[in-house]
Write a protein that binds this DNA or RNA. Structure first.
Lengths: 208, 208
DNA sequence: GCATAATCAGAAACACGTTCCAGTTTTGTT
DNA sequence: AACAAAACTGGAACGTGTTTCTGATTATGC
């Protein structure tokens, strides 16, 4: 199992998306848009496959052709959200004196973004947690984005150095804590403030 | 049917259900036993409410009277498993020279136990991750067990000292990592060996 | 011992994820 | 242009979690 060069500049669309005709790309976009809208409005339960299909103006069978399950659909939506967020967060140097400060800055900004749309976050997080092995590709992609984000924040700017094992380990641990905290928040077991405090503690612990 | 101490030997009912007649306690026990058996055999999907009811020899409506949802049912089962495991793991001094060694010992032993019954673990973990706010009580109990387990391992034996904030923070971070690793393993996204390696890295990172 | 309330069994019904199918439209090839 | 293959539509249908209903059974207070 490896962990490759994460801060890939490659924007490549991998198999599950890039190909296809313009009509197909458009359908896919409409489906993901409908998913966003429904999730943002009513959370996981409101993302009903019939409703998504109707809103995206495709038949139910077509929806299932593009996304073989509700989980795939939501995890793909989460993936797209990350794809959009990561460049926004990494394009300019990240403020902060120490790696801990910078990582916290990034994590908090991301948390704030998600907390601004709680229902959407609930839907996506839940899907992520419920996914089984058949979604490992999509999930791996999200994990990579997360790792890349954190390692990028640990250094202030994008020098060319190879990313070390240590950095990856730190990033993965922080990613795990972040996910758990997110789940706790999403399920109403902790407040946003508690989540933030917990993340801060974890970062200071791990980044000596 | 397999294996371990899960198939209740203890007949005692604990706090969250202690009340009620003997017949009610017996029904509850039968229901949880059926849940164990089905989960151990076929995992989350195999725990079907009709099947649980039939196996426990109660009507479907009765099952729902005792546990308002499948998630509640499974999370309760997980809670009982923890209740049984924690004393077994904390009753004697934990081997290991350093806190890191001892924590690893405990976590690995627990992981081994769960990996010995993968389907059961899958079912319980999924339920845990999918739970919403209405099961926060049960989930909080599990979280406390986990924290207590780790803090106990960090010290070798049970001296009377107050547990520090720092220790709790470390325990919570490790609990988060453990949970994420467990989810990754359960959903087939990582192997047992990878999970163990990841846990080891995290422990060494957090416990200097 | 009996009246009353609580609980239970059994079964039907509903909701939503998922699958399947017959017919139609779009796309690609020759 | 004609044909074949692939994709799409509309809708029915199935499985499983959940709810609801009715009549039996059991527990509880007098």
């Amino acid at each position: 199992m490896t962990t490759n060069s994460l801060t890939s500049t490659t924007d490549r669309d991998n198999g599950d998306n890039g190909g296809g005709s313009a009509a197909q790309r458009d359908r896919r976009r409409r489906i993901l848009d409908a998913t966003y809208a429904l999730a943002s409005d009513g959370g996981f339960d409101a993302v009903q496959m019939r409703a998504v299909a109707e809103r995206a103006d495709v038949a139910l069978g077509t929806l299932y052709r593009y996304f073989p399950s509700k989980i795939h659909l939501l995890v793909s939506a989460l993936g797209r959200q990350f794809e959009e967020a990561v460049p926004r967060l990494t394009e300019r140097p990240i403020p902060g004196e120490t790696p801990a400060d910078r990582v916290l800055y990034v994590l908090k900004r991301m948390a704030r973004g998600m907390q601004g749309d709680p229902k959407l976050t609930e839907a996506l997080t839940r899907a992520f947690m419920f996914a089984d092995g058949t979604v490992s590709a999509e999930i791996h992609a999200v994990g990579m984005s997360m790792t890349s984000l954190v390692t990028h924040a640990m250094r202030g700017s994008d020098d060319g150095r190879e990313i070390t094992e240590e950095e990856i380990a730190v990033a993965r641990v922080l990613g795990d804590v972040w996910l758990s905290a997110l789940v706790a928040w999403v399920t109403g077991r902790s407040t946003a403030a508690e989540t933030a405090a917990h993340m801060e503690t974890a970062v200071r612990l791990v980044l000596h």
